[in-house]
Amino acid sequence: NRRVIAMPSVRKWAREKGVDIRLVQGTGKNGRVLKEDIDAFLAG
Rank of each mutant, 00 (worst) to 15 (best):
A40S: 12
L34T: 12
R11A: 05
K17P: 00
K12E: 09
D20K: 04
W13P: 03
N1I: 11
V19P: 00
G44Y: 15
R15Q: 12
D39G: 05
G18N: 10
A14R: 00
K17D: 02
R11F: 11
R15F: 12
N30T: 05
E36R: 15
G44L: 15
E36G: 13
A14G: 03
K17C: 13
V19R: 00
V19D: 00
R2P: 11
D39S: 08
E36K: 15
V24A: 03
V19K: 01
I38C: 02
G31I: 01
G28M: 01
W13L: 14
R15D: 09
Q25V: 15
N1P: 14
L23D: 10
R22P: 01
A6E: 03
A6L: 04
I38H: 00
R22N: 13
M7Q: 15
G28R: 02
A43G: 11
K29D: 10
I21S: 01
F41Y: 15
G26I: 02
N30Y: 13
A40F: 11
K35L: 09
I21R: 00
S9M: 09
M7A: 15
D39M: 10
E36F: 08
R15E: 12
T27K: 05
K29E: 12
P8Q: 10
R3N: 12
S9E: 12
A43L: 14
N30L: 11
T27Y: 03
W13T: 06
K35P: 04
G18Y: 06
T27D: 01
K17Q: 14
I38F: 02
W13M: 11
R22M: 10
G18A: 06
Q25Y: 14
D39Q: 09
V24D: 00
I21F: 04
I5D: 08
G31W: 04
R2S: 12
V10G: 01
G26A: 07
N30G: 15
V24N: 00
N1V: 13
L42I: 14
W13Q: 07
S9N: 10
V19N: 00
E16N: 08
I5P: 06
V4W: 05
E36D: 11
E16R: 11
R2I: 13
D20W: 04
R22S: 11
Q25N: 14
K29S: 09
I5H: 10
V19M: 03
K35D: 03
A40V: 10
G18W: 05
G26P: 08
L34F: 07
D39R: 08
Q25M: 14
R11E: 05
R15S: 10
I5M: 08
A40Q: 12
G31C: 07
E16W: 09
V10I: 06
I38T: 00
R3A: 11
L34A: 04
D37E: 00
R15H: 12
W13R: 07
R2H: 14
G28D: 03
G31L: 04
V33S: 00
N1F: 07
G26W: 02
I5N: 11
R22H: 10
R2Q: 13
R32Y: 07
A40C: 11
S9Y: 11
E36V: 12
I21A: 01
N1W: 06
I38M: 02
R32L: 09
K12F: 07
N30M: 11
R2W: 06
E16K: 13
G31Y: 05
A14Y: 03
G44D: 14
A14F: 03
S9Q: 10
F41K: 04
G18K: 09
K35C: 06
V33D: 00
R2N: 14
D37H: 03
A14D: 01
K35A: 06
L23H: 11
A43K: 14
R15I: 14
I21G: 00
G18S: 06
V33E: 00
L23W: 09
K12N: 08
L23R: 12
V24L: 06
K29C: 09
L42F: 08
R2V: 14
F41S: 04
G28E: 02
A40I: 09
A6P: 03
G28Q: 01
G26D: 01
L23N: 10
G18T: 04
G28T: 02
I38N: 00
E16A: 13
G44Q: 15
T27I: 02
K35Q: 07
G31T: 03
L23F: 11
E36L: 11
A40M: 12
K12C: 06
I38P: 00
V24I: 13
G28H: 03
A43T: 12
L42P: 05
W13E: 07
V24M: 04
N30P: 01
K12P: 00
L23K: 13
R3C: 15
V24T: 02
P8K: 14
R32V: 07
K17R: 12
D20N: 10
V10Y: 01
A43V: 14
V4A: 05
P8C: 11
E16C: 11
V33W: 02
M7D: 15
G26K: 01
R22Q: 09
V4E: 04
D37M: 02
E16M: 13
R22F: 10
G44N: 15
R22C: 04
V4I: 11
A14W: 03
R32I: 07
M7Y: 15
T27A: 03
R3H: 14
K35S: 05
V10K: 01
A6W: 04
K29T: 11
A6M: 04
A40W: 09
A6N: 03
R22W: 10
S9P: 06
I5Q: 09
F41T: 04
D20S: 05
I5C: 05
Q25K: 15
Q25A: 13
N30D: 13
N30Q: 10
K12Y: 07
N30I: 05
F41I: 07
K12T: 07
W13N: 05
K17G: 03
R11I: 11
R3G: 12
L34G: 04
V4M: 05
I21T: 02
R2T: 13
F41P: 02
T27P: 00
R15K: 15
K29P: 14
D39A: 08
D20L: 04
R32N: 06
N30K: 12
L34E: 08
Q25E: 12
E16D: 13
V24H: 00
N1D: 15
N30H: 14
L34H: 07
G31H: 07
L42N: 06
E16Q: 13
